[in-house]
């Protein structure tokens, strides 16, 4: 019998003021800083980029460790192969470009060279999500989770904020094998602190709750927390779980939530089809079916627009999570 807890998880050292004056930093900066730290700590860490080094923040590593930085030009498929070759001779390569080009353009190379061969390649996928903004659909990557989680040997991390991005980057150097880590372009709320634990493969309950669970990844964790706070006013007790590791999934956290709260909502800035919500649904359906609703991009390409405006237009706000919660609660067995 688990004790019925409520409210934010105090043991995780989350950021104070999450609900009012929250600081905002792009997650790609966490990658940039994490990579520089790795550069100091481990001389085998090398970085690659394909003509986007400022955008992906690989430039910060390049400035500190020019001899361990490989600029490949606009050649993403080449980059994936070079990274595999570097791994084959004992390096720990971090390649970086936009998610559409790493997990998309170079997918076959990622599949057959990197994943099939289980090479120790870290794939930093920048500009994930609709919030890329004005560049539009071609640059708004909405498929990385689907494209990478389908591959055996592949691991996938979608960090929620700056600190988690930095920790995930650093942690990934000591986890063997290929890993896709997804970052965003825009500034997003910093909801954790340097002290918040990050354990690869372990979901963290950011907010306790017993009526329904929201599993979220990336900056949608913040939206989920806002939704939970709002629903508190209506007496609805929402559990919010930060699922930074999308593969392998923390199945126990999912099954526990299904049993204990009886209803599940997922939230991702990504296609729901074959994405994060679908991954959770696979576990729920096989182990403990309960009413579920997936919040995310529903089978459409992105568009040009202001990041905030697009999050509203594509139904990716806390208000959309609230609607989804109300929907699953109406279907939940009393």
């Amino acid at each position: 019998m688990t004790e019925k807890k409520s409210g934010l998880n105090e043991t995780l050292h989350l950021a104070p003021n999450i609900y009012d004056k929250v600081e905002k930093i792009p997650t790609r900066n966490g990658f940039g800083h994490g990579l520089v730290e790795l550069g100091h700590a481990n001389k085998n860490v090398v970085a690659l980029c394909a003509d986007l080094s400022d955008s992906t923040r690989a430039l910060w590593f390049a400035e500190k460790f020019p001899d361990r930085f490989i600029e490949v030009g606009i050649s993403e498929q080449d980059m994936m192969g070079i990274a595999a070759g570097l791994a084959a001779v004992g390096k720990i390569p971090f390649l970086s470009t936009y998610g559409v080009f790493s997990t998309g353009r170079a997918w076959d190379q990622m599949r057959t060279t990197v994943a099939y061969g289980d090479f120790n390649v870290k794939i930093a996928s920048a500009h994930g999500g609709i919030s890329v903004g004005a560049d539009g659909a071609t640059h708004q990557s909405l498929e990385e989770i689907a494209l990478s989680r389908v591959l055996p040997n592949m691991k996938v991390i979608v960090p929620a904020d700056y600190w988690e991005s930095k920790k995930a980057t650093i942690a990934s150097a000591s986890i063997h094998g290929p890993i896709v880590i997804r970052f965003g372009r825009e500034k997003v709320p910093v909801i954790t602190t340097e002290k918040t634990p990050f354990v690869f493969g372990k979901a963290e309950t950011f907010r306790f709750g017993n009526d329904v669970t929201v599993f979220a990844c990336g900056p949608m964790v913040y939206e989920a927390l806002i939704a939970a706070k709002e629903l508190e006013k209506k007496g609805i007790d929402v559990r919010v779980v930060n699922m930074h590791t999308v593969k392998p999934l923390d199945e126990k956290a999912i099954i526990d939530a299904a049993k204990e709260t009886g209803a599940i909502v997922t939230a991702e800035e990504h296609q729901v089809n074959a994405g994060f919500g679908s991954a959770i649904a696979e576990v729920v359906v096989e182990h403990y079916p309960v009413p579920m609703k997936r919040v995310g991009v529903i089978d459409r390409f992105g568009e040009s627009g202001e990041p905030d405006q697009l999050m509203v237009e594509f139904n990716l706000k806390s208000t959309d999570i609230i609607k989804a919660i109300e929907d699953v609660l109406s279907r939940k067995k009393k």
Partner: peptide, 25 residues
């Protein structure tokens, strides 16, 4: 590049019919 515009940040042939292709990659 504005929301709802036919002139997407990268060309989209379904928005602007005088374009032969969509591109950006």
């Amino acid at each position: 590049r504005k929301f709802g515009s036919r002139l997407q940040g990268h060309p989209h042939r379904l928005k602007l019919s005088c374009l032969e292709t969509s591109s950006g990659s």
